[in-house]
Amino acid sequence: MTLPAPLSGVVPPVCTPLTPDGEVDVPSLLRLVDHLVAGGVHGLFLLGSTSEAAYLTDLQRRLVVEAVVGHVGGQLPVLAGAIDMTTPRVLDNVREVTTAGALAVVVTAPFYTRTHPAEIGRHYRRVAAVCPVPVLAYDIPVSVHTKLPAELVLELAADGVLAGLKDSSGDLGGFREVVTGVRGRPDLGGFSVLTGSEVVVDAALALGADGAVPGLANVDPHGYVRLDRLFRAGDRDAARGEQERLCALFRMVGVGDPARMGRNSSAIGAFKAALHLRGVIDCPLTAEPQIPLSAEEVERVGKFLAAAGLL
């Protein structure tokens, strides 16, 4: 299998189920993959933010990719994050995930210190020069402290460095600039533009996005696939209605008490609690040092699922 150009549809950033002692729970991971495949998704993105990649060891990261690639057997394209602080460390990750079978890698700008656009450009060019598979940029300024400039993304796309963009910046104006720039260039017709937002997928598609990488699709893949299908069929009113249902479900990410945990603990904890309540994974544990949801918070997740017709 090769990566579609452009990649389109719903490509969930797959959660990484853990055992009670913090190891990768491979049987639960494969059940989750089966759940997503049954939901009709169009690809799988491993080792992103929703996958808790930043909290996993190098061995755990490789195990995730090997297990999923071996399980799906070419049914769907599998992308993997090669996300780390510096170019040399990203190159190490690229080698590991591509050896494990990933069809494309997803790479952020370098982080820890703020980087200049010229440094970001050098980073992506160095990665693409040695990477045996397509490279997609991952724009997530909340985590890497740097917003990818639209003009840089388009320059790297035109030079064949980048094959696509996953935009989790929340900047619809910047996203539109990339989409418009790509659509105005016939030679960039294979460049994939994907939104990482759960709550504006219909708006992103209306702007010309190729697809979405929503973390909530772990919980409700059928809903996002239905939204994508309705929009492409031209039924925008029905697509908007489905988006609004998913927006209501997405409010589960706020169940965690902000006085004792961060938003990431709450959001990933809610996704995993929902998957546990739905019988997909065995344990809702999040990786250290994230704080687990309380029993009362898990109960609130269950109410969101019930309201959405998922429990």
Rank of each mutant, 00 (worst) to 15 (best):
I291H: 06
R183A: 14
E23P: 01
L18Q: 08
R263V: 12
V213K: 00
S28A: 14
G279C: 07
H145L: 14
V64W: 06
A209R: 03
Y138V: 05
P117H: 04
V78G: 01
S8L: 08
V200C: 08
G256E: 09
L305I: 08
L18F: 11
G234R: 11
V105S: 05
G262C: 10
C131V: 03
D25P: 04
Y124S: 01
F191C: 04
G223V: 13
E296C: 04
A158M: 05
E96F: 03
V24Y: 04
R240G: 06
R251H: 12
V90Q: 05
R260G: 02
D187R: 12
P221E: 12
P88G: 04
V127R: 05
D167I: 08
V193W: 08
L305S: 05
D257V: 01
G190V: 08
G256Q: 08
V201W: 12
A53C: 10
G262W: 06
F191M: 11
V72R: 02
V219E: 14
L29V: 02
E155N: 02
R236M: 13
V135P: 04
C131R: 03
A129Y: 01
T115C: 14
V298C: 11
T99N: 11
D58T: 10
Q290Y: 10
L32G: 03
L230E: 15
D84W: 02
P134H: 05
V179D: 08
A238D: 10
L277F: 00
D228W: 15
R263P: 07
G22H: 06
A80S: 13
A203M: 12
P149G: 07
A217C: 09
L305Q: 05
V130A: 15
G173L: 13
S28D: 08
G269F: 10
L136G: 01
E288L: 14
G181F: 12
P4N: 03
L249W: 12
A306L: 14
E96D: 15
Y224Q: 11
P13Q: 07
P289Q: 13
F45D: 06
P20T: 03
T195Q: 05
V255Q: 10
D25N: 04
V301Q: 09
L154G: 00
R89M: 14
V72D: 03
V144C: 13
G215R: 03
L310P: 13
C283P: 00
A287Y: 12
H71T: 03
V201L: 15
V26K: 04
A104D: 09
Q243T: 06
F45C: 04
A82Q: 10
G74D: 06
P17E: 13
P6K: 03
F45R: 01
H222R: 15
V26L: 11
G256Y: 09
I268N: 00
A104Q: 04
S143G: 00
S143R: 13
G223C: 13
A238T: 07
K147E: 15
R61F: 09
V144K: 01
V182K: 10
